[in-house]
Amino acid sequence: MHINMASSEALRIIESDYTGPSKPISINRTPTEAQRIDWWTSEGKAESIAQDRKRSALRLYQHIASQAANDLPANTFPAAFFFSDQAHYRPDKGLIKALIRASALEACHCEGELCFRLTDAGTYLLS
């Protein structure tokens, strides 16, 4: 989904909010696959939902969603970010997979694109 901000702003936000080694935003090398929910829940390493990383990631994803070219429903963010500087990013796959397994996120579609919506459990985790 087109985002009306530069990728450098998103990277700066997460850099200042989360000091851990693995940032919860990744270059999107597989844009087509990132639109499939089965890709998000398949393979890859298992991840725990560390408090600081999870909260920082969800805050970042919600901020990015607030800058989407199209209005998104509350507590919803896209599965793929196409920033104004032409950079393609996505949320961290392992973290999204763990949040889906914990019933904190559910898949939905907005403007024909895959998005993720925080459930009540996800909103609780964010607080």
Rank of each mutant, 00 (worst) to 15 (best):
E15L: 14
A65K: 02
T76W: 02
L114G: 02
C110T: 12
A34N: 01
L95T: 06
R29L: 10
L72G: 01
G20C: 09
T41F: 06
R36F: 06
D52E: 08
A69C: 05
F116E: 05
A104H: 03
E106P: 00
K23Y: 02
D17F: 11
F116L: 12
Y89C: 05
L60T: 08
P24I: 02
F82P: 00
Y18F: 15
F82S: 08
R55Y: 11
M5W: 03
A74V: 12
L126G: 00
Y18N: 07
P78H: 00
F77A: 03
G44N: 01
S26F: 08
T19I: 13
N28P: 01
W40K: 13
Q51S: 10
E43G: 14
D120N: 15
L60C: 07
I49L: 12
A104C: 14
E9I: 05
F116C: 08
Q62Y: 03
R59Y: 11
E9L: 07
A57L: 10
N4D: 14
S26K: 00
L72E: 03
F81Y: 05
L95A: 05
I49T: 13
T41S: 04
S84C: 06
I14C: 08
S7C: 10
E113F: 10
D17K: 09
G20D: 01
D71S: 13
A57H: 11
N28E: 08
L114K: 09
L95Y: 08
D17Q: 09
D120R: 09
F83E: 04
K93M: 13
L11W: 03
I27K: 13
A10Q: 03
L72N: 00
S16N: 05
W40I: 15
R59P: 06
L126N: 00
D85S: 07
E113W: 11
I96V: 15
T123Q: 04
F81G: 01
P78V: 00
A79Q: 01
G94M: 04
Q51W: 10
K45R: 02
C115D: 01
S48P: 04
I13E: 02
T30A: 02
N4V: 07
K45I: 04
Y18A: 08
H63G: 01
L105G: 08
P24R: 00
A107W: 07
G112E: 02
R101L: 11
K93R: 15
S127G: 14
A6P: 12
S42M: 09
R59Q: 10
G44H: 04
H88P: 11
Q51M: 02
T41R: 07
I25S: 01
P31T: 04
M1I: 14
L114Q: 07
I14Y: 05
A80D: 00
E111N: 15
A104I: 09
Q62K: 12
I64C: 10
